[in-house]
Design a protein around this nucleic acid. Structure first.
Lengths: 348, 348
DNA sequence: CTGAAAGCGCTTACAG
DNA sequence: CTGAAAGCGCTTACAG
């Protein structure tokens, strides 16, 4: 690796420059008391002059844990997760923590690899949007060894970790009721998978609303990777077609919207639509989408605070039973059948 | 920090379990030769049984540089950057590197802090979408101390670093020409800032096209943070209003689109539009946006490869003059005035 | 093919 | 208030 001379300045150099022991320099760096004012100034001057930067690896090696948080999200291309990640990073930075961010692509082998990387890098704590039951064992073991963990957006049962969720059931319930209020009786619930409890809760909210109204729930669920668009179109061409669609997440909403556009099926005249998960451009679409807005940034913020709190209280080995559930909000636009000017709420 | 017992298993434990020296275990881990097959098996079995994970901090401390790449982007909420970041992470992971991802929020103080964090964490190399001239000094110093650096999307002069850019000038030239071909003579170039060379190149492409056609360039540039929407609307209400708009990036495009919608100004009838930077929902908008597509993922991929190459060749202390420029593509939709069915190209 | 020793840069008790 | 010594977990020469 050639003769890298990077970060040549060590604590010993600073100590030498001041004619003191390394201990004294260390104390100054770490803001410890028991150092005379004059000495503090002398050392700080030398640190500045030599442009000394403590070597984090060495600190970590002693302290056993670095001031770094690990964050695992399924993907960075989903704006929901990127907003969330963004918030995590901000709060962490404010509190003096760095964030190592990983996208696992919803693959459990990638997720597993990342978790093991985190362990070997002495991460202080983990924030995760869990993607796979398969990583559960690893997460459990991490918890057992005292690593604080907070799950966000969705959770996996049987893991003693902090949880920050969103009111999935309530949001879906309200969204579905809104469609029912518009007079719809055959409402199709469309989504990509039921493997996460967040999605499960959304389905429950939909079902509850339908049953409360004496209506028959109807589902169109496909495996991840299978295009929903064509299936939805087919469903709309059946004998007694649904007159409205409730979509379980933004990826599905976009897919459905694309398919409807391709087939020139008009919204809300031929089929009304409400989606779970709002996004920036929802109000600029051909038909502005009525959607359940989730507080993505707030989710990240709260989760980060929870994790840092448990780090500070040193409760790594204790139970991490904290649980926060954040409210969702139904943003009315036109895809549900509301009047164009009823309420134009751009995201942001 | 209570009695954390994390990662108790060390190389010494494994060595003891096998009745060998730590050196032998180290050799097995690092895939070194000079170890007997039988020994390799014995050690690997012990590693698996004890669930041993090498401590990265200790390795780093010895090797002076960790197998971690630092990535700084202005923001994660801009899909262009998040796609880019995503690609970086994938390529890095394939090559056995982790990525530390930071969003600097286009603030040079944040950027500076992140750069200094990277140094103290023995990052192997840096990938950066530079946000501020102010961090230039720091970047230069990092280079001087042998840290490989690759700038992507935009570059700052005077820094000896690898560069991966996009054909900004060519893309803008083609986009502007397309509007001219539609018969427009008064085309307004709208954007948020000219502080980056990428934006400068786009403006140059626009100007070149205008001048070549014997037309007068017209600019509407506002400082970051100042809303462009109202200004554009005002410009459209002037005496000889522009009949077309060329927007310099996606943030601006969305802002303009919102303003036009709010004012019920029809596209492309009242004003045509082409934007630099394509995005997923561009084809589902009320008026599908004609846009210059940049290869975001490819940008990240190439930059990462360039960085890792220079890491491998140990050329940290040498010149890093590699430079790659990737092509852009004009995606025709309807906002420019093309026929609805001319070419419907959804992103992805 | 295998191992004992030294040291990476820092901090943690322990003395003065 | 200040410092010398030991050690965190690993790898790098150097021997055998």
């Amino acid at each position: 690796m050639s003769m890298r001379s990077r970060s040549v300045v060590t604590i010993a150099d600073v100590a030498r420059a001041c004619g003191v022991g390394t201990m004294t320099v260390s104390r100054v760096i770490n803001g410890k008391k028991h150092v005379s004012e004059a000495m503090v100034r002398r050392v700080e001057e030398a640190i500045a002059r030599l442009n000394y930067q403590p070597n984090e690896a060495a600190r970590t090696l002693k302290g056993r844990t670095s001031r770094t948080l690990g964050l695992i999200v399924p993907s960075l291309s989903d704006p929901f997760f990127s907003q969330c990640a963004h918030a995590v990073q901000q709060v962490a930075a404010e509190q003096g923590y760095m964030t190592m961010l990983f996208a696992c692509e919803a693959s459990h082998s990638v997720e597993a690899e990342e978790l093991s990387q985190m362990r070997s890098r002495n991460i202080a704590g983990i924030l995760i949007v869990p993607s796979s039951e398969n990583s559960m064992e690893q997460l459990k073991e991490l918890r057992r060894s005292g690593m604080p963990v907070v799950m966000m957006d969705r959770t996996i049962a049987g893991i003693d970790a902090g949880e920050v969720m969103v009111e999935n059931l309530e949001g879906s319930f309200r969204a579905t009721n809104h469609l029912i209020d518009h007079g719809h009786r055959r409402i199709l619930c469309v989504g990509y998978d039921r493997e996460y409890n967040s999605i499960g809760q959304r389905m429950d909210g939909y079902r509850k609303a339908m049953q409360t109204a004496g209506l028959q729930p109807q589902y169109l669920l496909v495996k991840r990777g299978v295009p929903v668009g064509p299936r939805v179109v087919a469903a709309l061409r059946a004998v007694k077609p649904p007159t409205a669609i409730f979509s379980l997440n933004n990826v599905t909403s976009v897919a459905v919207l694309s398919a409807l556009k391709r087939e020139k099926i008009r919204i809300p005249e031929q089929v009304a639509m409400v989606g779970f998960d709002d996004f920036e451009l929802a109000s600029l679409l051909a038909v502005p989408l009525t959607a359940v807005r989730q507080p993505a940034a707030e989710l990240g913020r709260q989760a980060t605070r929870m994790l840092i709190d448990s780090l500070r209280s040193g409760s790594g080995n204790q139970q991490m039973s904290a649980r926060i559930v954040l409210p969702t909000e139904l943003i009315l636009r036109q895809s549900c059948g509301c009047e164009p000017l009823a309420q134009i709420t751009p995201l942001d």
